[in-house]
């Protein structure tokens, strides 16, 4: 371009079907590449610029707001069936900048950068004065609750020994004094009933993940734990889920692999 020349861009409306298709492709890409936490759902398109790209195609520069759903990223439930995390549960918002190339009708995410922010304590307490707020995942009460809950689950489990993958969310409840945790787990090669050395248990080649919700209640002279885990069907190995050049098709997803067609086990 000659010096001083600024290449032009166009600004379609944020709610234009074309813009929405690109934003949905970006959210799909985000969810396929998230390594932890919860699946994100599109909430609002903030800005859009469409730049011409040489020799062919266009680049969509989008700013989008997302909201956390209740589906963990390891949960194979389609995003359409996931609920948005409600304000009373202490919602979390994502602010994302994305660049999407449209060429020959195909959408490819070239860049995506998101920052997540929980709703303010003030806003949560305004709509629900007694609701527990999100707690730090490093809090010792949180890590203890997750470890105790997983131990309780493994003790009652006749199948594989499950290891903790991540604590994804936690709340400290004042009355009764308790800790609510949600965490992801993965099956290992060991049987839960006869684990001598948990450190030697390896994750299965065909990864099998689960997602648990637990409450650890402090009682006089001890504690009580209630835990429910959903174990997802084994997942076939993904070629390269973190490949930034991976193409995101605007068309609906293909049918899930056969290994994922089975329902979860609770």
């Amino acid at each position: 371009a000659p010096p001083g020349a600024v290449p032009g861009y166009r600004e379609p409306p944020c709610d234009d079907p074309e813009t929405e298709t690109v934003a949905m492709a970006a959210v799909k890409y985000l969810n396929e590449n998230l390594l932890q936490g919860y699946k994100q759902i599109l909430n609002q398109i903030d800005k859009v610029k469409v730049w011409p790209r040489r020799p062919f195609g266009e680049v969509y520069e989008l700013e989008i707001d997302t909201l956390e759903t209740t589906c963990h990223v390891l949960d194979p439930t389609p995003l359409e069936n996931c609920s948005v995390r409600q304000l009373a549960e202490h919602a979390v918002e994502g602010d994302c900048d994305v660049h999407v190339l449209k060429q020959d009708g195909q959408l490819t995410v070239m860049h995506a950068n998101c920052h997540s922010t929980p709703d303010s304590a003030e806003d949560v307490l305004k709509i629900c004065p007694h609701c527990p707020l999100l707690a730090s995942l490093n809090d010792t009460r949180v890590t203890h609750a997750a470890e105790a809950a997983l131990a309780a689950f493994n003790a009652k489990n006749n199948g594989s020994y499950f290891k903790l993958v991540e604590v994804s969310r936690a709340q400290l409840v004042p009355l009764p004094v308790s800790t609510y945790v949600e965490f992801a787990v993965a099956a290992t090669s060991c049987a839960a009933k006869d684990v001598a050395d948990p450190a030697s248990c390896q994750l299965l080649a065909e990864k099998q993940y689960g997602f648990c919700k637990a409450t650890l209640t402090e009682k006089l002279g001890g504690e009580e734990v209630a835990v429910t885990c959903t174990v997802f069907p084994s997942q076939v190995a993904d070629a390269n889920p973190a490949d930034p050049a991976a193409a995101v098709q605007a068309a609906p997803s293909a049918a899930p692999p056969a290994a994922m067609a089975v329902g979860p086990i609770v």
Binding site: E11, P12, P13, C14, D15, T19, E20, I41, L42, N43, Q44, I45, D46, K47, V48, D65, L67, V84, L87, A91, E93, D119, S120, D123
Partner: peptide, 27 residues
């Protein structure tokens, strides 16, 4: 005051193209 039509301005209500609609709720 300049006439909006004479200046090439639209006579109808202004459409704000962005940001788009909120699908769930704002936090």
């Amino acid at each position: 005051k300049p006439n909006a039509a004479a200046a090439g301005g639209a006579a109808g209500p202004m459409v704000r193209p962005c940001p788009g609609r909120v699908r769930h709720f704002k936090i």
